[in-house]
Amino acid sequence: MTHQSATIVEEDLHAYVDGLLPETRRAEVESFLAANPKETERVRAYQKQKEALRALFDPILDEPIPPELLHPQRRWSWPVLRYAAIVAWITLGGTLGWLLRGADSRKPDEPNGFARQAAIAHAVYSPEVRHPVEVGRDQEDHLVAWLSKRVGAPLKPPHLSQLGFELVGGRLLPGNRGPVAQFMYQDEKGQRLTLYVRMDPGTKGETAFRYTHEGNVGVFYWLDGPFGYALSGEMKKEELLRVANAIYHQLNP
């Protein structure tokens, strides 16, 4: 070897394979390889791996794009349930139950415990991409009938379109005083709100709006006759209040 041998490290060999070396360094690696047949063999194998990967997967680039990928925002209707999804639900339900038990043991019956449960339910379900709700708004009549029956009083999701939020759907959740309904809304930016509604014949009267937050999730909650409401969202307090006001006025025309 007439070359002064430069120190070549593992990283250099990979950068050589990936064509990421500057000219001078590349020349140094080449002279190193010329003197090290075993390393040359290894580098060649890596280069062939790369070529083989490209040969195997590049044809995907030319496949037509499935139409559902081109219109991702349309997929809000209730999707086909697959077995795996059901199992995922059970896992999620378990997680939620566990979280709620934690909430219950901390603050058993205070209204604040209610707000906390609402915030947890919001945090659990609002990031859900595929199954944010159990029943979607395309079946709103069914949703209303079902949740009203289970919660034990006529419920109706408020309409918030004039504030830019569309109903996504709803679900039923366990609360510490019986079933609770959760309605989910979304605006065009994908920002989500949930309205958590419980029914408790034992409570009467009204309260003013109260505000609390759990992490990033802000919650306005209030009692209105036998109903307890909690509106949760990751947004500014004033914006959330605006929505809470609209809901209150719709429910008390």
Partner: peptide, 21 residues
């Protein structure tokens, strides 16, 4: 990369991966 190389050479008779066109 090293693992892939080992797996490939243990998988077939040819120790080296041929380029797939």
């Amino acid at each position: 990369r090293e693992r892939l190389r080992a797996l490939m050479s243990e998988g077939g008779n040819a120790p080296q991966l041929r380029v797939v066109k």
